[in-house]
Design a protein around this nucleic acid. Structure first.
Length: 460
DNA sequence: ATAGGGTTAG
């Protein structure tokens, strides 16, 4: 604030907010914007600041975003600026606006909610929403979107249903954004039935509505329904976006529908989204999952821009069809091209090493993982154990296992599988009794069963 | 033109 105090009127005028506030003020006082001289504007500002009742735009209609008020730092700056001769007065006015004294308006609440969601702080979003309700604010359509988003990320179905009720109460159901967020929330929380219900009742839909529905159906294993929705959408003349095409390609992949996938590929070329990295990577993935590595290669080689996901898709595709050495070649090529690696990519590489029993390459990848700092990532740790176990180096597997910061069911299963497969029964007995958490003791396990059976046993 | 919101690949 002390710095603002030192600003001159001219230096501050160049700021957009202030300029537009001037303009709004000038307009609201009945003057021609262009005709109002700088001196006149400054006079208006002075009048404005001398009357604190004007500080908050309390008009019932939508808040005029051009109208200056003290929610904005720029406007606060202006306060210092205009009353720079009387800092005591300014300080008193600002103190009067301290939290708790002045009620935040809807815009500020909604902006805070949106920021929390963007930062991935979903619990905080919900807390803020509750706080807002306690303070007697009635949420609007801009409030519900981030709140539903948080519920979706937390997979909080019950909380989401409660928000849905509040949406109905507030009369925001008809808003397309709110409807889209509801569809997304329900499908992410695993209730595709509710998502369909919302969808069917929506008075207006847009491409995002369709996308949310298509992706929701794919994620819950209803690929056929997703394709039907895509056809319906096209019949209504809605143009697909990358999210649509990704959903449709995922649907094809989930059903191993190569023919349908090829048709979608043609449509993608027609639509011009072919050069989109997300769409391209999904195409590669679709072909790989449908068992046509030739097509995947063709798409991959033609892609104008690729990223780590694209490369990982190819690597995992090769592993899956039993071409582990090709996967490792691709990994080398990727490094030569200077593509930044990430944890999932290393999972692919470790899978490749495991599939062709390439211990040396596996060790080398391990070194790189340590260098990149990914060794503490759960999936990477588990893949390392798996790779070492499958390559026959139980000692290395054990070393990684003991160093894991947290062990999940997969860590234990991979470890047990490794021990059993390589004939060290006694050690796997020990592991299971440690893992059991009182549910499953070593004596209750039939070690004459297959390794797979024991893996299941450790899960229960 | 002038504050804020939704879907998206391994």
């Amino acid at each position: 604030m002390a710095e603002c105090h030192r600003l001159t009127f001219e230096s501050c005028r160049s700021r957009h907010t202030l300029t537009w506030s001037h303009r709004a003020l000038a307009t609201s006082s009945g003057g021609n914007v262009r005709a109002v001289a700088a001196g006149r504007i400054e006079k208006l500002w002075r009048q404005f600041f001398s009357d604190p009742s004007q500080w908050w735009d309390c008009r019932p209609e939508k808040v005029n975003s051009n109208y200056p008020d003290f929610k904005h730092k720029h406007t606060q700056d202006a306060l210092w600026l205009v009353h720079r001769k009387n800092p005591t007065w300014v300080r008193a006015q600002l103190a009067a606006m301290a939290p708790g004294t002045v009620q935040l308006d809807m815009f500020s609440w909604n902006r805070r909610l949106a920021r929390y969601v963007k930062a991935g702080q979903h619990e905080k979003t919900i807390e803020l929403y509750q706080e807002m309700q306690q303070k007697g604010m009635s949420p609007d359509n801009f409030t519900f979107v981030p709140v539903l988003n948080a519920c979706a990320s937390l997979r909080a179905l019950e909380a989401g249903r409660k928000v849905h009720e509040e949406i109905i109460q507030s009369g925001c159901e008809a808003d397309v954004f709110v409807g889209n967020s509801l569809v997304d929330m329900y499908s992410k929380c695993g209730s595709i039935e509710d998502a369909c219900k919302v969808f069917n009742n929506m008075p207006s839909r847009d491409v995002v509505t369709w996308n949310a529905m298509i992706l929701g159906h794919v994620k819950c294993g209803q690929g056929q329904k997703a394709l039907e929705l895509f056809h319906q959408m096209q019949q209504k003349g809605v143009q697909p976006t990358p999210a649509t095409l990704i959903g449709v390609l995922n649907a094809c992949a989930s059903m191993f529908a190569l023919q349908e996938g090829r048709c979608t590929h043609e449509q993608i070329i027609e639509s011009g989204w072919e050069s989109d990295v997300f769409v391209g990577s999904s195409l590669v993935d679709m072909y790989a999952k449908c068992g046509s590595m030739e097509d995947a290669e063709r798409v991959f080689n033609k892609m104008l821009s690729r990223n780590v996901v694209t490369w990982t898709t190819m690597i995992l595709g090769y592993v899956k069809c039993g071409q582990g050495s090709k996967a490792l070649e691709l990994f080398q090529q990727m490094q030569q091209e200077g593509v930044q690696s990430d944890p999932v990519m290393f999972v692919g590489v470790l899978n490749a090493c495991a599939s062709i029993v390439a211990l040396e390459e596996g060790r080398h990848a391990h070194e790189q993982i340590i260098q990149s700092g990914y060794e503490s990532v759960a999936v990477v740790g588990n893949s390392l154990i798996d790779m070492y176990a499958k390559c026959g180096s139980i000692e290395d597997a054990k070393r990684v296992f003991n160093k894991l910061p947290s062990r999940d069911v997969v860590s234990w299963n991979v470890m047990i599988f490794g021990h059993v497969k390589y004939g060290q029964r006694a050690k796997s007995t020990g592991i299971i009794s440690t893992n059991a958490r009182g549910r499953c003791t070593a004596s209750s396990i039939d070690f004459s069963g297959s390794a797979e059976c024991m893996c299941k046993c450790s899960c229960t």
